[in-house]
Amino acid sequence: MDTGGTRIGRVAGMRPGTMATMASALLLAMTLMPAAASLAAAPAVDAIERPLVDGATDPLRGRAIALGRDGNCLLCHGLVDAGRPTGNLAPPLDGVAARLGAGQIRQRVVNPALTNPNTIMPAYFVVDGLRQVAEPWRGKPILDAQQIEDLVAWLQTLR
């Protein structure tokens, strides 16, 4: 999966099973390439169903990650009860769980480029294919696996 490696990026510390899910998603994406416009709508390629970690998740911690400096999601996304000015480069997160399933939400956060290669949204759990990353962050994903799962747990509460 060399070609995929550059664009999709190696996913940091991911479990083998999840990696396989992503690889098959990519393969499917590639066969569907001529019809890329429908890619975002094709459910088979846009979800990572298996959680990145086993065990408990904490939606409140997820919210803190989204609103705080770790996730910084509100740089781009709106959120009705944010209590401060938010960005408008992206759809509001309100109601996201009514639009997307857990696996789709996980994919959007882990690596949104899987469904939209031109997205401006950073991949929060990818370390490869990046350039000129500043030293403190080099070789590290923006969030770790537990943080991703806490975030996904919180996003699932936004109906």
Binding site: R7, M33, A36, A40, P117
Partner: peptide, 14 residues
């Protein structure tokens, strides 16, 4: 537009 544009630009992207 971004989604649709992907149809044309994926090849250049890769």
């Amino acid at each position: 537009a971004v989604v649709l544009a992907c149809a044309g630009c994926t090849v250049r992207e890769s």
